[in-house]
Structures are given as C-alpha cells and as structure tokens.
Amino acid sequence: MGVTQILFWFLSVMAVFSALMVITSKNPVYSVLWLIATFFAISGHYILFNAQFLAIVNIIVYAGAIMVLFLFVIMLMNLNRETEPQKNRWLKMAGAAAGGCLLLVLVAALKDTDMKQQQALINKGNIGLIKILGKELFTTYVVPFEISSVLFLSAMIGAVVIGKKE
C-alpha cells in the first residue's frame, strides 16, 4: 500500500463518513459543516487525480461560496436541533431503504463491467492543469461557456426578483 492508496482510502472514508453525518446530524449547522468536510475530501480526490484546477474551484465555489450561503440562511433562520423538523421513523426507514436499494442495484449492475481492468490515472497526466483546461474551455467549449453566462444572468435576475422586497 503506497502513499496514494493510503490517501485514497483515507479520503474515501472521510467523504463517506462526512456524507453520512450530513444526513444524520440533527443540527443543520452540523450538516453544513460535515458537507464542507465532504467537499474537502472530494477536493482531496481531485488533487490525487492531479486535477488541481477542479480541486481549487471546488473549494472556492462549493466550500467558499455555496456553503457560506447555506450557513447564512440556516443561521439567520435560527434552526437548531429543537426546531429542526423530523420525519417520522417509518418514513425515514423507507427512505433509507430506497436509497440503499438504489445503491445495491447500481453497484450490482456496475460490478461486472469491464471497468475492473480500467485504471484511473493518479498523480500523473496534466489535463487537470489550468493551462490545458483553459485552452480547451476558451476554444472548444466557448459556446457552452458563453451560454452559462446567460444562465448566470437569469439566476441573478431571479435572485433579484425573488429577494427584492415589494
């Protein structure tokens, strides 16, 4: 077991554990924090892949912006363990069972694929570096890139429309 393996398992366990904590924490603030931990674990995976750009964007966008907004909202709403609504137990179990089934089915379906022989390149390969991604983004993917600006614009207008007091 090399360093990479150790890191992989560490990050994986961290990701899954934090994700589980997200959905089991009673206190929404804890959920947010665990989710951030998950994001960091995933970023760690990206770094293992040498996808540095995505790793840092993941942190900036998700951990730095999105989750801050979540935290904002939750803190302002003052939701804590006492006021946090809970589904009844059976519904919860049903939901968990459904999710578990999905997991099982997907895993079972994908277990026997030829993917077993496929290796994901770790630590090597420079496609994750900003130079290559940037070039690709502004040549091949320039149309979707511009389109996403429209998306942002509409989201912006949306936030104004919804948020502005009348």
């Binding site: 603030v29 924090l33 951030i36 540095q52 750009f53 790793a55 840092i56 964007v57 942190i59 900036i60 951990a63 730095g64 912006a65 801050v68 935290l71 904002f72 803190m75 570096l129 900003i130 130079k131």
Partner: peptide
C-alpha cells in the same frame, strides 16, 4: 509552487469565512 498559485490563496481566503461564522454562531 503550485500550479494554481494565486487561486489557492483565494480558495483559502474563501474558506476563512467559516472561522468567523462558526465562532459567531
């Protein structure tokens, strides 16, 4: 001397918010 350089600074700064928020809350 990471490839992301200045972006890393940004990433960390953006995470820095949590210190304040968590403490305050």
């Amino acid at each position: 001397d990471v490839d992301m350089g200045i972006l890393l600074v940004f990433g960390i700064v953006s995470v820095g918010v949590y210190g304040i928020m968590i403490g305050g809350w």
